[in-house]
Design a binder for these strands. Structure first.
Length: 284
DNA sequence: CACTTGACCTGTCCGC
DNA sequence: TGCGGACAGGTCAAGT
C-alpha cells in the first residue's frame, strides 16, 4: 500500500518521465476527485515532482501545482511513444488504461499521456498555487519525516507524549509523516515491541531500537521499489518487490522468522490488520 | 482535548 | 454456480 517507499518510487519515475514536458490538455472524467480549475494548468511545463510523506506535488512553470494523494489504489501511469505498460501487468490495472477507473487524463507534449487511475476513488488531485502547497490542508499538518526532520530525539519526544498504542502513533501522519500499516508492523516486529503497548511506556532502549528499525524497514522498502500490494505500480507499470520481503506483514500462520517457535498471528488494532509474533513481542 | 470508531469505495476471496 | 459478507487500509468526520 502506498506509504513513504511506494510514493518515493512514484516520485522517481514521474521525475524521470514527465519533468520538462508541457501539459496540453486535461480530461476530468470524475470531478469528485479533482479539485480546482483544469484550465489553470494548461500550457504549463512540469518543473519538478516533490513528495511530502505520502503526497506528491507536481510543480508547474506557471506557479501552480498538481497535488496528488493516491491513497490505497491510485495509480499514476505514464505512456509515451516508446513506453507502454507491459502486457503482463495489465492485470494490475483493473479496468485497463484508459478504463472504467481512469478519472483524469493529462495529455502532454511529444505524444505523452499521464493517466490517473483509482479503483476505489479514495485518492484526490488538487490544483493550488505552488507557494501554498506546504501550508495546505493536508501537507501543512504533517509531522516530521523519517530521513528528514524526524531525528531520534524528536521521535523520542513524540512517543513519550502519547498514551495511545505505539503502532497507532507510528501511523499518525500528524505525528510523523509517511509510515503506514506495512512498515509499522515490520518495524515493531524487528524491534520486538508489541504494537498495542502504550507509546509512552517504551523504555529508552526500546525507543532507540524502534527508531533504527523503522528507518531500516523504510530503507529496505525504498530499495525494493515499494510493496506492490493492492495493485501498486509505478508510472511505467513496474512493480515493487517489498511484498516478497515483508517481515511479518501478511504472514499470519507462518512461523516467526526469528524465534521459529510460534506462528505469526493477526489481530485488529485501531481498525487495521496487525501482525505479531506472540513469543517475540510481549504485551507487557 | 485525547482518543476511538465508522464511513468512504470496489474487487477479491471464502463459505454456504 | 451464485450470493452474501468479510476484508483490504489512508484519512477524515463524528462520536465517546
Amino acid at each position: 500500500m502506498p506509504e513513504l517507499p511506494e510514493v518515493t518510487a512514484v516520485q522517481k519515475k514521474l521525475t524521470q518521465y514527465i519533468v520538462g514536458h508541457t501539459i496540453l490538455k486535461v480530461e476530468v472524467r470524475n470531478s469528485k476527485i479533482f479539485h480546482g480549475d483544469p484550465q489553470s494548468v494548461i500550457n504549463s511545463t512540469i518543473q519538478r515532482v516533490r513528495r511530502f510523506a505520502k503526497v506528491l506535488s507536481i510543480d508547474l512553470s506557471n506557479g501552480f501545482s498538481l497535488v496528488i494523494h493516491i491513497k490505497l489504489t491510485g495509480q499514476i501511469i505514464y505512456r509515451g511513444p516508446n513506453l507502454i505498460l507491459p502486457p503482463d501487468l495489465s492485470s494490475k490495472v483493473i479496468g485497463g488504461i484508459p478504463g472504467k477507473h481512469t478519472h483524469v487524463i493529462f495529455h502532454l507534449d511529444q505524444a505523452g499521456t499521464l493517466y490517473y487511475n483509482d479503483m476505489r476513488r479514495f485518492g484526490w488531485i488538487k490544483i493550488m498555487k505552488t507557494e501554498n502547497v506546504e501550508t495546505s490542508d493536508f501537507i501543512g499538518r504533517l509531522g516530521p519525516e523519517p530521513f528528514g526532520e524526524l531525528t531520534q530525539d524528536i521521535f523520542t519526544k513524540i512517543l513519550a507524549s502519547s498514551k495511545r498504542s505505539v503502532k497507532v502513533v507510528l501511523m499518525d501522519q500528524g505525528k510523523m509523516g509517511g509510515v503506514g500499516n506495512i512498515y509499522a508492523n515490520d518495524a515493531l516486529w524487528k524491534s520486538q515491541i508489541h504494537p498495542s503497548r502504550s507509546a509512552s511506556s517504551l523504555s529508552v532502549s526500546e525507543v532507540r531500537t524502534l527508531y533504527t528499525s523503522l528507518l531500516y524497514v523504510l530503507d529496505l522498502g525504498i530499495k525494493h521499489g515499494g510493496a506492490s500490494e493492492l495493485m501498486f505500480v509505478t508510472p511505467d507499470g513496474t512493480e515493487g518487490s517489498y511484498q516478497n520481503h515483508t517481515l511479518v506483514y501478511g504472514k499470519q500462520g507462518n512461523v516467526c522468522p526469528r524465534c521459529k517457535k510460534v506462528n505469526i498471528i493477526r489481530y485488529v488494532l485501531g481498525g487495521r490488520g496487525t501482525y505479531i509474533c506472540p513469543h517475540c513481542q510481549k504485551e507487557k
